[in-house]
Design a protein around this nucleic acid. Structure first.
Lengths: 185, 185
DNA sequence: TTCGGTGATGTCATCGTGTGACATCACTGA
DNA sequence: TCAGTGATGTCACACGATGACATCACCGAA
């Protein structure tokens, strides 16, 4: 007889998503999430630093994707081309996951506390972006601006993708990049 | 004899800033802030929704400043000129307040929870920006992108100003705007 | 002057979040 | 067989946040 079912982290994630969607974030307690996952509240906090993090754990993966793409961009590419490469690579990570992204987006958008966490995760993406750009030799100040701009494009495109009809995030990102260069020219 | 000293909100703000700087945000309890301000913890929560908000209350003012400037921009100005007008107006609101801005920036930057709140305040600025741009007749999608870009410039410029030698935020904003148009051209 | 209303504050009780300390128990390898 | 390991449970507790109710200086009307 097993003492506990494996995969507690995954069960907690699913339970949290479901409960946040059903009852709202504020209306859900950690104890409820833990119950549904078949563990105690104490165990919840062993896997996730706080009640928000259960929806955001794993976002470091995206940092890696972006950094890799930026570094792998052709040597002759300018800063903005490298940024585009990073943003597009991030977009590719969401292929076939629009339904999931929509559900998650709805939950996050409905709760200021979750939006806050989302923003700080984006700041981590900016940092990964910036470091990768500097590794390419982009000057520090310029790298910050380029990284911030890249993530801004990603956020705008992501929102359009989730709310719009186009199924491919990469397409929306391309449109948004084009629109930005029009806007600032 | 007065039952209580007036200006509780201001005293709470000052006490919080001082304690967060001295002991860190996590190391400070609401009870300590309230004590120093000469009130009870319950009163703290009557003025501020939570322990973070005490550093951020009043940021609606900046929303107004931005919106007014965007709307007041010349009718013939394009979206990006209107954005520039908004960002520059926001910059002017900080004339002569660099020392204060630096201290506050240091406190916020040191604590993830406070950075989260800062980000969501920036999102409010984006929203104010967007609404003002749409009022000028900028198309919705374009307005979102322009507003996001404007606040990105503001954030980057603000950080450079706080960390750098240039005393005038407006100058730094002008530089940053120029750099952005170079970058995306 | 008196008296009822008002508003800022205090007091008390309570719930939820988050964490440290320690106990438990299946599993593993020597 | 047995000591160690790791995931979990149990317990206690501090702090954040909120609702309900009490208090009391002040102000205006009768």
């Amino acid at each position: 007889m097993v003492r506990w079912e494996p995969g507690a982290a995954g069960r907690l994630r699913e339970a949290a998503m479901a409960l946040y969607a059903e009852q709202g974030y504020d209306g859900t307690t950690v104890a409820q999430i833990a119950d549904r996952a078949g563990v105690t509240a104490r165990t919840f906090f062993r896997y996730f630093a706080d009640k928000r993090e259960v929806l955001f754990a794993g976002s470091e993966e995206l940092e890696r994707v972006i950094a890799d793409a930026v570094i792998a961009a052709p040597a002759e590419a300018g800063p903005m081309e490298a940024v585009a490469a990073g943003v597009l690579a991030a977009g590719e990570a969401f292929v076939g996951r629009r339904d999931f992204a929509r559900q998650r987006y709805a939950v996050v958008a409905a709760t200021p506390e979750l939006r806050e966490r989302e923003f700080i995760k984006m700041a981590s993406l900016v940092e990964a972006f910036r470091a990768a750009l500097q590794e390419r030799g982009v000057a520090p100040g310029r790298a910050v601006l380029a990284a911030e701009t890249g993530i801004t494009v990603f956020r705008v495109a992501f929102e359009r993708w989730v709310e719009g009809a186009e199924a491919d995030l990469v397409v929306v990102i391309r449109e948004t990049l084009g629109e930005l260069s029009e806007l600032t020219s």
